[in-house]
Design a binder for these strands. Structure first.
Length: 840
RNA sequence: GCGAGAGUGGCGGAACUGGCAGACGCGCUGGACUUAGGAUCCAGUGGGGAAACCUGUAGGGGUUCAAAUCCCCUCUCUCGCACCA
């Protein structure tokens, strides 16, 4: 090893394995709850164990690891755990395809990926590892479910659900994207099933309001949650159905347009629709187009509704664009002031009555509804009021007459958690013919997944196929009973795992003291794709945990960093389609020799084949390079474009530093223990670099500029050596500080070089301090502008007063040249930087 | 359609509260050392020009002594929501 080093060749693997072995052996990253130092909880979103990590993981975990290591050096007791979000469909699909049991498939994947993470040198406390598919974890999912069931937060109802005919399961609304399954892109259909729901809507106001307290979250994420919750204030108004005793309750946010209602539209599933005698075929047509975006379809019911404000009889339509799930499933249609109603009225030849006019601004363009607020006309006693005022007065009027009331509506719906799948947490409920749905008693938890299940992939819940699982006795009356055979949405698992990490594997899962010690998470790092799903469910769960008296915390994640995607150029062969980079060497297709077309840069994905395998990357360059490049190529929140050449650059930087140390190792070690005697340029640069790196990390983790600063310093050190006039004490000082700064980014190389300088373990070192005085330049370059254009630059002593700067600038020969014959109108001085002379 | 964000060299990206545009890296050009170089080191590198100098941060206008940064308009791209009444 020594020989290799002296030959000036940086060999990453050897060094990295050495340090990884040492850290593991010493338990370097164990976090103890009774540590007297202040805590810092640094968390990255745990992965689904799909088999191998991808570059997105590398980036995510590199970011988190730098933060964890930096905070350790800053004197925090850092909790930095890792685990596995290990329930879910792929394991089951693999079982159907390959016959391996999901448990086996999953644990093999975990074993492999754990090694991959270790190979990256990530500083995790593995004694807290969480694996959600293990009974010791998922029993707590069941426990939470029971607690929610007892409190009425978990409940059962029959409802139309989003059904993916390919995955053969129910999807949450959040998992339906443009009418397609989020996982397999199949068209989602509606199916009626008995389902378990969690009453997240009970917390909707709080979840909305507390978004304001999340100062450490990116605004776009809180905004997405806000829109998702979708609070809107309006009124419900009751429209009597003429000739029957029925009523249709509509919801509107525009009570000011009530006098302009020309018809009423109800959703195809609305209960009043069933009372009407209608052509079944025509009704079915509307139903088929329900929720489809293309065109509006309606069916006149032959009935009329009575507008409560003016007694006007208006036709009732069943319309495909009215959603059953939102509001009351019925609307009043005001074609003059709502674009959708306008289009509907145009299609079916219905009247358009204007009741709001613009006070001063422009009227609506021809063929469009006027949707702005304005002043009321033709609205009885409310005529002449402004919209906002009218909304209040009309609402009050309705309320007083018992014809309506003010309401607040939410877009958010309760969370359906039932899944007709095997590889998830069994829902701990027993159905007894006498007692109904009964929760499994706590002391009988966990309800384990049975192992005698066949994976056919055909319909229904696999658990129903296991008689030993299904048949049981009622916990209440002891009579024969059946178990619930659905399993839970896997988002349950990830909604509270961060709480589980607060205790080690051996400790009680919900230890209050541990949770108090570590919660909330100080820094959470993950992909923006979880902006609503996982992050909203977690916020909901934390409140459940709070209300169960386990914690005082409401918000689980104080600060959130959403890292950008890892992208790469796509390559395409006209004949063979997408190509891996290795199939396109030399710009031609490896299969047919045709020139390769370069496509646009897109998120790395297997289907587009624009991927880099972390294993290859690490075996070619090492973990330090992989980490360094993922942090250097872009700031964390932005997308990162992967570039092989860029990786070379990062590798070369480490190598340069490495060579700098080892080719001067004896000289450097001859001054061990000495400090610089004066503030020489390289010493000053060192202080400046510490300042910059610290600032860049503290300011939203701008690692890319922090790394750039370190590169500058290394370049400066190199120049010192190259000059042949280096002061050994100074360069040793500079190198040591560089290694300390670099150690969170490239921990292995930094450790090795630190040790080579005779310094022991860098892990135990503090983050370096800088001396602001020493960082100050003695001389500054004063920029002299004439009329805003740079005309000259002169060196002046730092701290020169403004008056003197002005004098110097005016005395400058180039200034004289440029101002010759022109009168000086004004002179502006920017302290210590610039003088701008304004001439005629 | 609504909402959010972004547009800077050949490329990824810098530029703190308006004050030298292009840090750092890649690429490229020239040179050194070499049997060799896709290694390493040195120098150069926004565009135009021999030079002084001119010009330049998507496009157009404005504020200012001074604008990538602030204001208005236009264009393009990315993301989120999308018949939510």
């Amino acid at each position: 090893m020594e020989v290799i080093k002296l030959a000036g060749k940086y060999v990453a693997e050897e060094t990295e394995l050495k340090w990884q072995g040492r850290w593991a052996g010493q338990g370097s990253f164990k976090c103890l709850a009774d540590d007297p130092r202040p805590k810092f909880y640094c968390l990255e979103m745990f992965p689904y164990p799909s088999g191998r990590i991808h570059m997105g993981h590398v980036r995510n975990y590199a970011i988190g690891d730098v933060i964890a290591r930096y905070k350790r050096m800053r004197g925090f007791s850092v909790l930095h755990p890792m685990g596995w979000d290990s329930f879910g469909l792929p394991a089951e699909n693999a079982a159907i395809k390959q016959g391996a049991h999901p448990a086996q498939w999953t644990s093999e994947n975990i074993a492999y990926m754990r090694k991959q993470l270790a190979r990256l040198g990530l500083s995790y406390d593995w004694s807290r590892e969480v694996t959600t598919c293990l009974p010791e974890y998922y029993r707590w999912n069941q426990w939470f479910f029971i607690k929610m069931f007892e409190r009425g937060v978990a409940y059962r109802k029959s409802s139309f659900v989003n059904w993916c005919p390919s995955c053969l399961t129910v999807l949450a609304n959040e998992q339906v994207i443009d009418g397609m399954c989020w996982r397999c892109d199949s068209q989602v259909v509606q199916k009626e099933l008995e389902q378990w729901f969690l009453r997240i809507t009970q917390y909707q106001d709080e979840l909305l309001k507390d978004l304001e307290t999340l100062k450490g979250w990116p605004e776009n994420v809180t905004l997405m949650q806000k829109n998702w919750i979708g609070r809107s204030e309006g009124v419900e108004a009751r429209f009597r159905v003429d000739g029957t005793g029925d009523e249709i309750v509509i919801f509107t946010t525009r009570a000011d347009t009530l006098f302009g209602a020309e018809f009423v539209c109800i959703a195809p599933g609305h209960h009043v629709a069933e009372t009407f005698q209608m052509d079944a075929g025509a009704l079915n047509q509307v139903k088929e187009r329900y929720g489809k975006l293309d065109e509006k379809h309606g069916l006149f019911t032959g009935r009329y509704a009575v507008n409560p404000v003016n007694g006007k009889k208006i036709p009732i339509y069943i319309a495909n664009f009215v959603l059953m799930e939102y509001g009351t499933g019925a609307i009043m249609s005001v074609p003059a002031h709502d674009q959708r109603d306008y289009e509907f009225a145009a299609k079916y030849g219905l009247p358009v009555k204007t009741v709001v006019v613009s006070a001063d601004g422009p009227a609506a363009p021809e063929g469009k509804a006027f949707e702005e607020d304005g002043m009321l006309v033709d609205s009885g006693e409310f005529t002449g009021l402004k919209s906002a005022d009218a909304r209040n007065k009309i609402a009050a009027w309705l309320q007083q007459k018992g014809l309506g009331r003010k309401v607040v509506n939410y877009r958010l719906r309760d969370w359906g958690i039932s899944r007709q799948r095997y590889w998830g947490t069994p829902i701990p409920v027993i159905y007894c013919p006498g007692c109904g749905a009964v929760a499994v008693p706590e002391d009988q938890l966990p309800v384990r997944l049975p192992t005698d299940v066949k994976f056919t992939g055909k319909g229904g819940s696999p658990l129903a196929e296991s008689p030993s699982f299904v048949n049981t006795s009622c916990p209440k009356c002891g009579g024969p009973a059946r178990r619930e055979t659905d399993t839970m949405d896997t988002f349950m698992d990830s909604s509270w795992y961060y709480v589980r990490y607060c205790s080690t594997k051996d400790e009680y899962a919900l230890d209050k003291n541990n949770i108090k010690r570590f919660m909330p998470v100080d820094q959470y790092v993950g992909g923006v794709e979880h902006a609503v799903l996982h992050l909203l469910y977690s916020r909901f769960f934390m409140r459940i945990i709070r209300d169960l008296g386990i914690s005082d915390v409401s918000e689980p994640f104080s600060s959130l960093l959403t890292q950008g995607m890892v992208c790469m150029e796509t390559l395409k062969c006209p004949e063979h389609g997408w190509l891996y980079p290795s199939e396109a060497k030399g710009g031609v297709c490896a299969h047919c020799g045709k020139p390769v077309e370069k496509g646009r840069t897109e998120k790395m994905s297997k289907s587009k084949r624009n991927i880099v395998d972390p294993d290859h990357l690490i075996s070619n360059y090492g973990a330090d390079t992989a980490r360094l490049f993922s942090l250097f190529a872009a700031p964390p929140e932005k997308d990162l474009e992967w570039s092989e050449k860029g990786v070379d650059g990062s590798y070369r930087f480490i190598q340069r530093l490495w060579n700098l140390v080892f080719s001067n190792i004896e000289k450097l070690n001859s001054v061990k223990g000495f400090s610089p005697e004066a503030i020489t340029p390289v010493v000053r640069k060192t202080h400046q670099t510490i300042m910059r790196v610290t600032r860049d990390i503290e300011r939203d983790y701008h690692f890319n500029t922090a790394i750039a600063a370190m590169m500058e310093l290394v370049n400066a050190i190199q120049a010192e050596f190259a000059s042949g006039k280096e002061d050994l004490k100074d360069v040793r000082f500079a190198l040591e500080k560089t290694l300390l700064l670099l150690s969170p980014f490239c921990p292995h190389a930094a450790s090795e070089l630190w040790e080579a300088l005779g310094n022991g373990d860098i892990q135990t070192q503090k983050w370096p301090e800088y001396d602001a005085e020493a960082a100050k330049e003695e001389e500054i370059e004063l920029v002299i502008q004439i009329n805003g254009k740079v005309r000259s630059k002169i060196m002046v002593a730092a701290g020169t007063p403004d008056e003197k700067l002005k004098e110097l600038a005016l005395a400058d020969s180039k200034t004289a040249e440029a101002t010759a014959g022109k009168g000086i109108k004004n002179v502006f001085v920017v302290r210590g930087r610039l003088v701008n002379i304004v001439v005629k």
